[in-house]
Amino acid sequence: MAEHNELGKEGEKLAIDFLLKNGYKILETNYRYLKAEVDIIAKKDNTLAVVEVKTRSTDYFGNPQDFVNPKKIKLLLSAIDYYVVDKDLDVDVRFDIIAIIYQKKETKIEHLEDAFLHF
């Protein structure tokens, strides 16, 4: 497996642990709908958190969250629209980013709630 894929998988594990420690229930990981893949679908209270995980080994080229583009957002929106209807859920939906800078000596995790409001 390519090094960046391993980094991404490690980041997703860190994000899941982070969410569990903060009271979220993980409903799905790597949920696929058409061309979209949702990293994590989690629930806390009556809010469905759609979580895009971005992991980098450095912030030299920018913050991890800066790499979520409008095309990805559009794909996530369509996937979650389908998911909510398919599962007949009555929940509030929020789109989050968990940005991780994963280094051997220090790992930084930032949870950006309602992240797509800023795009």
Rank of each mutant, 00 (worst) to 15 (best):
K72H: 15
Y82N: 14
F61L: 11
F61I: 05
K87C: 02
Y82F: 14
D86K: 09
S78L: 11
F61H: 07
V68K: 03
I80Y: 00
V68H: 06
I73V: 15
K87W: 02
P70N: 14
Y83Q: 06
Y82Q: 06
Y102C: 12
D92M: 00
I97E: 04
I98M: 08
D86S: 09
I100S: 06
Y82M: 04
V91E: 11
A79C: 12
L89P: 15
A79H: 08
T107F: 03
D92E: 02
D90C: 01
N69H: 13
I73K: 14
Y83D: 06
P64V: 09
D81I: 06
D90T: 09
L77A: 07
D90E: 13
L76P: 03
D92P: 00
D88P: 01
N69Y: 08
I73N: 01
I100M: 04
P64F: 12
Q65H: 11
S78Q: 12
V93Y: 15
E106Q: 06
L89Y: 14
K87H: 08
D92I: 00
I80P: 00
K74Q: 13
Y82T: 05
K72V: 11
G62H: 07
Y60L: 14
F67S: 06
D88H: 07
K105F: 05
Q65I: 03
K74I: 06
V91A: 04
V85C: 05
V85L: 13
P64M: 09
N63Y: 10
V84K: 14
K105I: 04
I80V: 15
V91I: 12
I73Q: 10
S78H: 12
D96R: 01
D92R: 00
V85Y: 12
A79F: 01
L76W: 15
Q103I: 01
V91Y: 15
K72R: 12
K72C: 03
V93C: 10
Q65V: 02
F95D: 02
G62S: 05
D81Y: 11
I73W: 09
D88R: 07
K74W: 10
V85P: 01
I98W: 10
D92T: 00
Y83T: 08
K71G: 03
K74N: 12
K71R: 11
Y60V: 10
T107W: 04
L75Q: 14
D66R: 05
E106L: 09
V93D: 13
D88N: 13
D88S: 13
V68Q: 09
Q65F: 11
I97R: 01
N69T: 09
N69K: 13
I98D: 04
